[in-house]
């Protein structure tokens, strides 16, 4: 067998293998989505999105409290993670040259690898055990801490991608350093930073573990951040492991709502990335 034929065969086999892997990866994703969609659509109706949970055995009802709760907890998380993350990312990109910056960078990378349940325990100790009560606030803090590393690192990376010639142009106009950062560097990085924040939101929106002993869940309507609050992933968990067929069906519906929300965030982040890239 001549050499070039052998090479061609190896080439085709390798291409086929990588193509097969790609197809498998896509298939896994599509299978999950299809599964959630098929089981979820049966349970999905207007009541699920607009009504409060009903007691077991009473037909109807929905998970509107969990939908509102998830939005509140994610809002709290963003309120914590976005300003702190933007500030820290700005520091690392624009001023962070020394040892302190290296330590912060390293800690951010470590934090992004900490299991989410550990972060939940942290928030439990920080808030819940002191207040003597589960609360939306503690859930928001747990998710905010989880969001923080990715917001910090994407902000830093996106700001670094703004060319130095832009900073020089601004400084040469007599702008102060912070003005240069606020009016030239940050706007230049805005698209990328927005994408990063939305992806971080999408990632924590599906987290259940850290909410188990922070937000805790609540079968009633509550928007008080000092009280326990229902969230979509937690409601999904509770309903899915319940022995009642009606609740299990609602769990599928909730899964569909949650997945759709995360897909929407993903699509929005891609959009933000495409428009106005500097």
């Amino acid at each position: 067998m001549n050499k070039s034929l052998w090479r061609k065969i190896v080439n085709s086999v390798m291409m086929a293998l990588t193509g097969l892997s790609a197809a498998l990866a896509a298939l896994a994703l599509l299978a999950v989505l299809a599964f959630v969609a098929r089981n979820g659509i049966a349970a999905l109706n207007w009541d699920l999105l607009s009504k409060l949970p009903t007691p077991v055995g009473v037909p109807g009802g929905g998970v509107v409290n969990a939908l509102a709760g998830s939005l509140i907890v994610i809002g709290l998380a963003s309120l914590l993670a976005v300003p702190v993350g933007l500030g820290a990312g700005t520091y690392l990109s624009e001023f962070g040259r020394g040892r302190f910056a290296d330590v912060v960078r390293y800690l951010a990378d470590v934090l992004s690898g900490v299991p989410s349940i550990v972060i939940g325990i942290f928030a439990y100790n920080l808030i819940v055990s002191r207040q003597g009560q589960f609360s939306a606030l503690s859930g928001g803090i747990a998710l905010g801490v989880m969001m923080l590393p990715s917001v910090v690192r994407t902000t830093e990376e996106m700001m670094r991608m703004v060319p130095d010639s832009q900073r020089e142009a601004a400084l040469a106009l007599g702008l102060t350093r912070w003005r240069t950062i606020a009016s030239v560097v940050l706007p230049g990085a805005r698209a990328g930073v927005t994408t990063g924040i939305l992806l971080a939101v999408a990632r924590v929106a599906g987290e259940t573990a850290p909410l188990l002993f922070t937000a805790f869940g609540n079968p009633y309507w509550s928007v008080d951040i000092r009280e326990p609050i229902a969230t979509l992933p937690h409601t999904l968990f509770t309903y899915a492991i319940s022995p009642y067929a009606d609740w299990q069906a609602k769990a599928w519906g909730t899964a569909l709502i949650l997945t759709s929300l995360m897909l929407t965030a993903g699509v929005l982040s891609r959009r933000a990335g495409r428009h106005g890239t500097a």
Binding site: E168, A169, G188
Partner: peptide, 12 residues
């Protein structure tokens, strides 16, 4: 004031 080698208007 200063003008640089490569034109660098603010793209945003």
């Amino acid at each position: 004031g200063m003008v640089f080698q490569k034109p660098n208007p603010f793209p945003t």
